[in-house]
Simulated assay, not measured.
Amino acid sequence: MLLACPLCQDLLSPAEQGLSCANGHRFDRARQGYFNLLPVQHKKSRAPGDNPQMVEARRHFLAAGHYAPLAQGLVERAQTLNPKRWLDIGCGEGYYTAAIAHALPQADGHALDISRDAVKRACRLAPEVAWLVASMARVPMPSASCDLLLSVFSPLDYAEAIRLLAPGGHLLRLGPTSEHLLELREKIYDEVRRYDDAKHLTDLPAQLALTDSGQLSFELTLNNPADRANLLAMTPHGWRASEAKRQAVIAEPLVVRVAVRYDVLQRLPE
């Protein structure tokens, strides 16, 4: 575990029941096993990030194995990169993080999310990971400390990613394509807008080079009403839908395409 103080950026060291830096800033370890390294002055709301309902819906949906092919795809690429220290930025409830941790038992794993509700549940899945409540724009780790960064269905700050990556290190990003959950979106919105699947690479910083990319897609049949309700609750689409459209989705079996793009970016030497 390699962490930096979110207040002064000095290195954090183990202290009784927590962590402290040379300047006297102290952070206790929560009973669930995570560290809260999100100072109140860095919060934009009282309880930032996903709410408990979204977290629970995602936890149940993913635990049912519906997105297992995505986790396997991430694991295969992470194993190829073989990092010594990695960080999952925006880990949510920890489903993908735990899969990576179990596949890389010798590596030093870290994971963070701004939602305390999410991290509380995540740290049960892989106690060996250093779980953090923290901001992805102010990651409490030293510069050039990571060999691999993971960003799965999560916003990404390229400047912070470049700071965290050691030269030669990699960023593994996974995000939705315009085909992702298209059938669900067509049931919710009057007009479904397509978008450029590679838009996130338009202004790629010069310090990062794209070394690999591809797509993972498969068809998902959801016969269980609870699965359909959880899919709605865990995505922004469900929260934007009218109650009538939500109930219409839950009422009938749904066949939907899961379609994501992955990109591997390498941190170039200065």
Rank of each mutant, 00 (worst) to 15 (best):
A126S: 11
A126E: 04
P127L: 08
V129D: 04
V129H: 01
A130H: 10
W131L: 06
W131F: 05
V133R: 02
P140S: 08
M141W: 00
P142N: 08
S143P: 00
A144K: 02
A144L: 02
A144Q: 11
S145R: 00
S145C: 07
C146T: 12
L148V: 00
L150F: 02
L150P: 00
V152P: 00
F153C: 08
S154L: 06
P155L: 10
P155A: 13
Y158H: 14
Y158M: 13
A159G: 15
A161N: 06
A161Y: 00
I162T: 00
L164W: 02
L165S: 01
P167D: 03
G168W: 09
G169A: 05
H170F: 10
L174C: 09
L174W: 01
G175L: 12
P176Q: 08
T177Q: 03
T177S: 13
T177N: 09
T177A: 09
E179G: 01
L181C: 09
L184S: 09
R185E: 13
R185I: 07
R185Q: 14
E186Q: 15
I188R: 07
I188M: 14
Y189V: 14
D190E: 15
V192R: 13
R193S: 10
R193G: 05
R194F: 09
Y195T: 10
D197A: 12
D197R: 10
D197P: 01
D197V: 07
A198D: 15
A198M: 12
A198W: 12
T202H: 12
T202C: 04
D203M: 06
D203S: 13
P205D: 13
P205C: 11
A206I: 10
A206M: 11
Q207P: 01
A209Q: 12
L210Y: 08
T211S: 14
S217T: 08
S217M: 03
F218Y: 14
E219W: 13
T221C: 14
L222Q: 07
D227L: 14
D227A: 14
R228E: 02
